[in-house]
């Protein structure tokens, strides 16, 4: 053939320029994706900070017309709700995840794995409706319990899948070492496998909890909301998210302001959980 001394042709320039343009566009897309994040954080922090004081954490909401007050009941309410959710979601998630990774290589395992994934895609409001028909209707009134159960159901997929993935990461040799010592499988799983996977599982649990803390829709007609101090799980209970919703819709400027502060507190709470998450994953790499 004619020895083409690296002579670029027209098509070469065209494809080089196309490539450059397209690659730049992906960069612009990446920047554009960050803009809403920056905006949301900017507004939440700048608007929320005005009411962020000690009162917000320790005082009760004031009636309409009186400014000031806090959301102590909502902060405690959110913690109680995710506590109830965790009491359901954590054991179910961890045990199901353990089943899937240790015994789940069969048809039933695949079905459950699939359903867990499907469950994670079901809108949270639908879970709220189910919690309503299952708990609120028989109990004949709204309750923290119903809200907590709804949150618990929503946590299951996250915790299950993280547990399964994390247990799978535990080297087979570790398991065999246990079995070779004559330790029965269940003891090996509990004392060796789960023990070495616990950090990963804990991050899954924290992720599940922080997502639950941000849920509103499933609480609207289960936990409902409560303007008063209540820690009873049989009674309606306040939560930060429902407060944000109610106060954002309200015509009172003072309440609108407090909605932003509640949003900031919620973000701080979630950040605290994911900070824990980061600390745990960090130390995991160190020990390895």
């Amino acid at each position: 053939m004619e020895n083409g001394m690296m002579k670029p042709d027209f098509f070469f320039y065209r494809k080089k320029i196309t490539s450059f343009i397209m690659m730049s566009l992906t960069f612009i897309a990446a920047l554009a994706a960050i803009i809403p994040l920056v905006l949301i954080f900017y507004y939440t922090i700048s608007k929320g900070i005005t009411y962020l004081n000690l009162d917000f954490f320790v005082a009760m909401p004031k009636p309409v017309g009186e400014s000031g007050g806090g959301m102590a009941n909502a902060i405690v309410g959110t913690l109680i709700l995710i506590g109830i959710g965790g009491a359901i979601g954590i054991p179910v998630g961890i045990m199901t995840g353990t089943y899937l990774s240790e015994f789940g290589k069969n048809k039933f395992g695949y079905v459950v794995r699939f359903l867990t994934d499907v469950l994670s895609g079901i809108p949270s409001i639908v879970v709220g409706v189910v919690a309503y028909t299952m708990i609120v209707v028989p109990m004949k009134h709204f309750s923290a319990l119903a809200g907590g159960i709804a949150l618990g159901i929503l946590m299951i997929p996250t915790i299950t899948r993280t547990t399964e993935e994390m247990i799978k990461l535990v080297p087979q040799t570790l398991r065999e070492a246990g079995l070779a010592l004559g330790i029965p499988k269940w003891k090996t799983t509990l004392s060796i496998v789960l023990k070495s996977a616990w950090k990963g599982i804990a991050t899954g649990v924290l992720l599940g909890l922080s997502r639950a803390a941000g849920e509103t829709a499933p609480l609207l007609f289960t936990a409902l909301g409560n303007r008063f101090w209540s820690t009873s799980i049989g009674q309606p209970i306040a939560s930060l998210t429902v407060y944000i919703y109610d106060y954002a819709k309200s015509p009172f400027e003072d309440w609108n302001q407090q909605a932003w502060t509640a949003a900031l507190v919620l973000i701080l709470l979630i950040s605290l959980l994911s900070l824990l998450f980061r600390v745990i994953t960090r130390s995991k790499y160190k020990t390895n």
Partner: peptide, 25 residues
Amino acid sequence: NFGDFIFERLTWLFALSVFLLVILM
């Protein structure tokens, strides 16, 4: 091992509960 059997059945029960939950919903 009896313990193994119980352990498997126990975790299986939880997995079953997830299965039943979706149907129950």
